[in-house]
Design a protein around this nucleic acid. Structure first.
Lengths: 225, 225
DNA sequence: TTTACTATGTGTTTGGAGGACGCAAAGGCT
DNA sequence: AGCCTTTGCGTCCTCCAAACACATAGTAAA
């Protein structure tokens, strides 16, 4: 391969992260306000350029922490966006990642020199996004719905201990449909993914719900519905 | 972004295609024999560098036709491989694609100046592959199995008209398990994905099977099993 | 303390889909 | 005409999931 060939020259690799959480009965995603040209002040997905000495996966973790302060969260490659015009500066391919966090980490947001601001947005009320980031978010939402149905990744969106109604809420909010409490409970318990902790909720106005935890906090392909 | 920064300089974007077909009761994939350094003479996946003025998806189509002569086949992005050491020459990220063809196109293989040879291999008897291409094939097989279960992509692996035993064969070969003829038939017909053509097989030694076709030759998410 | 209210936890019924399997039909071959 | 092979069709039976009624555990108000 001729590395000086202008057909290939000056290509760049980028990562962009779509971070989702479920909070306040909404799916929310994390956006940062861009601090440099082009598109200064516009909202974009957190992300950045991949260094030559790191893997793309690692770059995703690093950039996410640098731009938002979030670390140690579930991260999975989503899709690579390769339209030649997607970045006005140069030929830039973006590897998009889907990240999931439970809402207790929502408050850990850190402004950096590279971004003007970072904020959670209801995905139904997104502002205009620069580049092709709106398209990336759309695909991420699709993927999130599939993952919820075909795996146990709900564990990433809930605290260590949670109630069955909370779990059901996550499913209802993301999939946008209601389920029967009793059938949902039976189905999920039969799947064997979660177990009772023996403890119960405290300080509730009504009957306290039992607390459960996921047996394994690791991705597992399972048909939920 | 500083385009001269050595952290980002000299990055390259590549596409690699895993082409599958089902033939002779085996899953086969197409490999080409490399014509240049490094790894001259070794078997690799068909692929090549992405040009600056084309989308990554388009590059996949173009490279596949250039390297093998195959065109107009089902092509889907699989995963992006971004280990910094995966190519000894430079920082090269590879976007891997999964391609599917029906066996009638197996014979259309074209040697080019860029490759010494092109050949179909039983995936259970692959030679050593250069780069990280073995890993790519492994992931592609996994993905193929999932796709077969959760969508109608079987249509890409069969001719326009096919028999139910042929269809069942595709499933059995790829998934590696036997199904009951009568249950498979009932399930697939109930799915409504295929319809009878009214014609039958000809020149068979036994009872000729009815010919079917897929109603829509377009990807559709459906739970098959 | 008694009652009302609300959300959680448990049981029952019922219908449909899928797995196991028997048998008939349509060819070619001897 | 019989035999063999493969395809096509129907039945039984079990299990799972949707639909629904009722009991339980807490707070809040009378």
């Amino acid at each position: 391969m001729d590395m000086k060939n202008p057909k290939y020259k000056n290509q760049g690799i980028h990562v962009d992260m779509v971070v989702f959480t479920v909070d306040d009965k909404k799916i929310k995603t994390l956006l940062v306000q861009r601090g440099r040209k082009p598109f200064v002040g516009e909202w974009i997905l957190p992300g950045g350029a991949v260094y030559n000495d790191e893997s793309v996966d690692f770059a995703a973790e690093r950039e996410l922490e640098e731009k938002t302060g979030l670390k140690d969260l579930y991260l999975e490659q989503l899709h690579t966006f390769g339209n030649p015009k997607r970045d006005p500066r140069k030929r830039m391919v973006s590897v998009a990642y889907l990240a999931l966090v439970d809402k207790k980490k929502v408050s850990i947001l850190q402004k950096t020199s590279k971004t003007l601001d970072a904020k959670w947005f209801d995905i139904k009320k997104l502002p205009d996004l620069a580049f092709d980031h709106k398209e990336i978010v759309r695909l991420a939402v699709k993927s999130l719905r599939k993952m919820l149905i075909y795996s146990n990744i709900a564990y990433t969106l809930l605290p260590c201990q949670f109630t069955l109604p909370e779990l059901q809420g996550v499913y209802e909010i993301i999939l946008g449909e209601k389920f029967d409490r009793r059938n949902f409970r039976r189905k999920f318990l039969n799947l064997g993914l979660i177990e009772a902790t023996g403890k119960r909720e405290e300080g509730m106005a009504n009957r306290p719900a039992n607390l459960y935890r996921f047996k394994a906090k690791k991705y597992k392909a399972v048909d939920i519905l």
